[in-house]
């Protein structure tokens, strides 16, 4: 196990290095930089002013120097300054991480709480009315675009209650905050829950056809014991994989929901930083997302061993 952990850690470092090179290069390949954006509203570009700002921001230095400077700063915990706000990048990024994390965790909880039980029920009652209804719901979850569902939900809320559950930094109580995050989390979680439900259902159906399930039934094990103790545990492996992927997706993939619900999280901030060509913000946020993805994948791999005792990461 120790060797495995060392090997995985080295692989993680290598992956992050690769991502850092790719994101750094891609950002510079995209035409235009922050100075072009600064001049956008002016309706022209003053070349002398542009050159001066590029010099001030260090954008006139060779690319390898810029890259080395970024990595050296990163190693010392210095993320640089945002070109757009002129504040330290850490001050811009740090307050947004908890916002997105709360939203992502709630969305993930919602998707698991909805997706797994509905998938199991659907599989156990295959081809029944309940199964058809749940499959229809899951198909809707996969088909409805988030922005449409989000706006529709907001309209319904305003029409029915007169309130708009969009982001408010100064919520009065924990329950207000929970409600504020719950609505967008449910919208995002609905899509994920549909995916998890369909995967749980198909995985359960496959497991329930296995010999050991038949044996358990022949031994006289109760229906619940067969379904939940024998079948579900084995059917969960692919579900855990997809939950891991969804968790990673939720870190950076909430752009539409954050926009519709006006949530100042990292996804919308990242997109805006890309539009502004705000390199320090984009580079560091992408690296943050990459670390989350790599760590989540690592945790998922470890969970395999917990769920299936046959899986061992030996030396």
């Amino acid at each position: 196990m120790g060797t495995y952990l060392v090997r995985r850690s080295l692989l993680m470092i290598l992956t992050l290095f690769g991502i850092s090179v790719v994101i750094f290069t891609l950002l510079r390949v995209v035409p235009g930089n922050v100075v072009d954006i600064l001049f956008e509203a002016a309706g022209f570009v003053d070349e002398a002013e542009k050159a001066q700002i590029e010099k001030d921001l260090g954008l006139d230095r060779p690319l390898y120097v810029q890259y080395a400077s970024w990595i050296a700063g990163l190693a010392q915990g210095d993320l640089g300054y945002s070109y757009a706000s002129e504040k330290p990048a850490i001050e811009e990024i740090a307050p947004r991480i908890p916002v997105t994390t709360k939203l992502a965790v709630l969305a993930l909880l919602f998707s698991v709480i909805m997706g797994v039980p509905l998938g199991v029920i659907s599989a156990v009652r295959q081809n029944s009315g309940v199964d058809y209804m749940f499959r229809l719901v899951s198909l809707s979850g996969l088909s409805f675009p988030s922005f449409w569902l989000g706006l529709l939900t907001l309209m319904v809320f305003v029409g029915a209650t007169g309130n708009l559950p969009i982001y408010d930094a100064e919520t009065e109580s924990f329950w207000d905050a929970l409600l504020m995050y719950s609505v967008p989390a449910a919208i995002v979680g609905f899509r994920s829950s549909a995916l998890i439900m369909r995967l749980t259902r198909s995985s359960m159906l496959e497991v329930m056809r296995q010999d050991y399930i038949r044996t358990a039934r022949a031994k006289g094990a109760s229906r619940n014991s067969v379904n939940y103790r024998h079948a579900l545990r084995n059917a969960l492996l692919p579900v855990v994989t997809i939950v891991g992927i969804e968790a990673a997706f939720l870190i950076g993939g909430l752009i539409v929901t954050e926009t519709v619900f006006n949530i100042p999280g990292i996804a919308r901030f990242l997109v805006e930083a890309i539009q502004w060509r705000d390199y320090p913000i984009v580079q560091n946020l992408v690296m943050f997302a990459a670390v989350v993805v790599v760590v989540v994948n690592f945790i998922v791999d470890l969970l395999y061993a917990v769920l299936d005792p046959r899986i061992r990461y030996g030396d």
């Binding site: 035409p31 930089n33 072009d36 956008e40 309706g43 022209f44 570009v45």
Partner: peptide
């Protein structure tokens, strides 16, 4: 795209 519009026109 916005960053390229005015440089292109210029």
């Amino acid at each position: 795209e916005t960053p390229n519009w005015f440089p292109k026109v210029a």
